[in-house]
Amino acid sequence: MIGRLSGRRVPWPGVAVLTLLVLLLPLVLPPFGVGIATEVFIMAIFAMSLGLILGYAGLVSLGHAAFFGAGAYTVALLGQYVFNTYLLLLSATAVAALLAAISGALFFRSTGAYFLMLTLAFSQVLFAVAFQAEPITGGDDGMSVVAVPDLGFGEIVGELGLYYMMGFAFLGCYLLLRLFVASPAGKVVKGIMENELRMRALGYNTFSYKLFVYTLAGAMAGFAGALYAYFNFYVTPDLLGWVLSGQALIMVIIGGVGTLLGPALGAAFFIVVQNYASFYTEYWALVLGLIFIIFVLLGRGGLMHLLRAVWNRTLPSRFREREDEMEPEEPAAEHQKERTP
C-alpha cells in the first residue's frame, strides 16, 4: 500500500530473503558466532541510521555515537526504576530523538566541515558529562544494566533469544528506512542532498526536512544504543565517544554510502574483522583503518558496489532488472561507474 503510494515498490522479495537469512543463520553459525551476529545486528541498525543522514541527506556527522550512547544510558539509568522493556526502548528512542532534534536545529546553521566539528564537539560534551557525573553514571567505570529484556513472553536471557530480538529489530529498522526512502518525503530529502537551493526554490522547507531525517536517524541510533545496553549488560562513556562515531563512519564507508543495506554489510564486515583480527593482533584498529583508507581511495562504492558489480556480471540479464529494483536510486555508485575506467 505505502509502496504503491510512492510509485515505487518496496522490494518485498529482498525483504523476504533477508528475513529468512535472519531466521536461519543460527543453524549454520558456530556457537560463538551467534553472539557476534547479535552484535552485528545492533551495529547494523546504528550504521544504517548514520548511512541515512550521510548517504541520503548528505550530512557528515562525526558525533553520531551521542545518540547511541544516550539511548544506552537511558536504559541503564531509567532501568533502575522502570522494568517494562517496551517503555524503556521507547524512552531511549525518545531521548535520542529529542537530543537530535535540538542539536540538529542548532547545528544546521552551519554546513559541511563546520557541521562535522559541531557534531563531534556535541558528542564529546555528552561523553564528558557521562565521564564526570560519577555519582550518577559511575564515571569512567560505567554502570551495569539491571533491566532484563522482556517483550511480553517471558524474560529473554538465552543467547538465541537475544539474537532473535536484535535480528527482528534490525529487520524492522531496515523496513522502516526502506519505506521512508521510497516515500515522497524521502525523495525530497534526497533532492535536498543533490541541490538544496533548487529544492528551496521549488518551495520546500528544506530545514524541516533535514531536521526530520536527522531526528529519525538520531532516534534509530538511540534505539540501537538501547538494544546494546540489553545486549552488553553494561554501559561506559565510550558508547558516546568519537571512537564509536568514527567506527560507525568506517562501517558506512566500507559498506557503501548511498545504499541502505551497505552500512549493515559494513557493520558485519567491521565486527567480523575486529573479532578475527584481534585474535591475531592487538592492532586491529590499524588493519581496519588501512582497509578504510583503501576504500576511500577507491571511491565511494564500498562493498555493496563490489557485490553489485559481481552480481551484474554473473547473472543473466533478466535478473538484472530485479536487482535494480532492489537498490533503486544510486547516484553515488552510478557516478562511480562513470569515473572508473
Binding site: V60, A113, G246, L249, A285, G289, F292, I293, L297
Partner: peptide, 28 residues
Amino acid sequence: LLFRSYGNELNQVLLTFGLAFVLADVIK
C-alpha cells in the same frame, strides 16, 4: 594521500580520519 582527492573534500576529511585512526595505533 590527499593529493589524490582534490575537489572531493569529504573524501579528504575521511582520509585524514582514517589516518588518525591508523597513526594512533602506530603510536601504541
